[in-house]
Simulated scan of single mutants.
Amino acid sequence: MKTLSSFCTSLVMLMLCTLAVHAQTVIPLWPKGAPGFENRRNEPEQAKDYWVKNIHNPSLTVYAPPADKANGAAVIICPGGGHRLLVYNSEGVAPAKFYNDLGVTVFILKYRLGRDSLSPYKVDIHPKQDAYRAMRLVRSRAAEFNIDTNRIGMMGFSAGGEVVDMVAFSGWKGDPAAADPIDRVSAKPNFIVQVYPGPGYVPERIPSDSPIAFLVAANDDACCSLPIIQLLQRYREARVPVEMHMYAKGDHAFNMGMTRRLRSINNWPQRLADWLTDSNILQPFHKKVLH
């Protein structure tokens, strides 16, 4: 009996250790809850299969790369889902693992959903508020995560691409008089990756100091092929570096590939890896040492 008890104890400890290894750090965007909705921060999220919704306490989930691969780059991922839910696994966890393999630290943003059932949030207000805060929070804690503050980007899928468009081209500057030191920090992404971004919030023009961009969609995507064409034109007009990949077939929501019987779609992430390399985003990070 003693042997069985010892075995069970060891098994439980092994399971706990395994869970600990795979556990991810979750950082609420605001410690006391989102401004104006603090009383809802403890309401549980709903999750099933591939999605998460009922988000009242917006947060960042951290996926850190192996220490021997980490290069100081970081990206905040905004999954899609029509502002009704977040396609969390395919458009959050899967790209996080892709970036981790490249040495990039990932923060998956759970933003508030304006079209969720009985949602008190507005699409054009609260996701934008969450995304600005996420950028400022990551940049303010860069030293903690060994991140280069000049290589923090944003990636958006579908509706998450709309969230990226909301914050990538204006409203970057922090408020030097803000009581919260996080709100004093710049929210400007250094690069953006837009994967079949939604049609809303593409600006009529972008400033000449906009973040460099990688754009990808399929031509037969009735919803979201036009936005990357519009973004490409705006980038060309502003003379800001941009790369676009428009695939003949793939429709919508091809995620990180490997789910369609199309070689081009299945291999599109390699084009992103090439662009990240050519844009010097994956270069090793050498922290400054003060003497």
Score class of each variant (00 low, 15 high):
10 S>M: 12
63 Y>H: 06
225 S>I: 02
60 L>H: 03
125 I>R: 13
59 S>N: 07
257 G>A: 06
81 G>D: 09
270 Q>W: 12
31 P>Q: 04
125 I>S: 12
75 V>L: 05
157 F>K: 00
144 E>Q: 13
31 P>M: 03
70 A>H: 11
93 V>W: 02
89 N>D: 14
78 C>W: 00
16 L>G: 14
62 V>Q: 09
237 E>I: 05
195 V>T: 01
95 P>F: 00
198 G>H: 03
131 A>I: 02
65 P>E: 10
122 K>Q: 13
87 V>A: 15
168 A>T: 09
57 N>A: 12
83 H>F: 12
116 D>V: 02
123 V>C: 11
186 S>H: 04
208 S>A: 15
125 I>T: 14
277 T>K: 07
166 M>N: 08
210 S>V: 03
205 R>D: 14
253 A>W: 01
149 T>H: 06
90 S>M: 11
57 N>I: 06
126 H>I: 08
227 P>G: 05
267 N>A: 14
66 P>L: 02
15 M>A: 13
273 A>R: 00
255 N>L: 04
131 A>G: 03
2 K>T: 13
229 I>C: 14
233 Q>T: 10
259 T>S: 13
105 T>H: 09
58 P>I: 01
76 I>D: 07
185 V>E: 13
239 R>Y: 07
157 F>I: 00
86 L>D: 06
23 A>H: 09
219 N>W: 11
242 V>A: 10
283 Q>Y: 07
268 W>F: 03
201 Y>T: 06
92 G>R: 00
168 A>E: 12
112 R>T: 11
190 N>W: 04
45 E>Y: 04
251 D>P: 06
238 A>L: 04
237 E>L: 14
197 P>M: 00
54 N>V: 11
125 I>V: 15
225 S>K: 07
10 S>I: 11
165 D>K: 07
36 G>Q: 12
145 F>R: 05
96 A>K: 01
274 D>W: 00
142 A>I: 05
152 I>W: 01
139 R>C: 08
152 I>Y: 02
90 S>T: 14
45 E>R: 03
93 V>F: 08
282 L>R: 03
172 W>G: 06
205 R>S: 15
265 I>N: 04
251 D>Q: 11
77 I>V: 09
118 L>Y: 12
120 P>A: 13
203 P>C: 10
216 V>Q: 03
5 S>A: 15
120 P>W: 11
254 F>S: 07
226 L>P: 09
132 Y>F: 15
245 H>E: 04
272 L>Y: 00
20 A>Q: 08
94 A>T: 05
21 V>T: 11
154 M>F: 00
182 I>H: 05
47 A>Y: 02
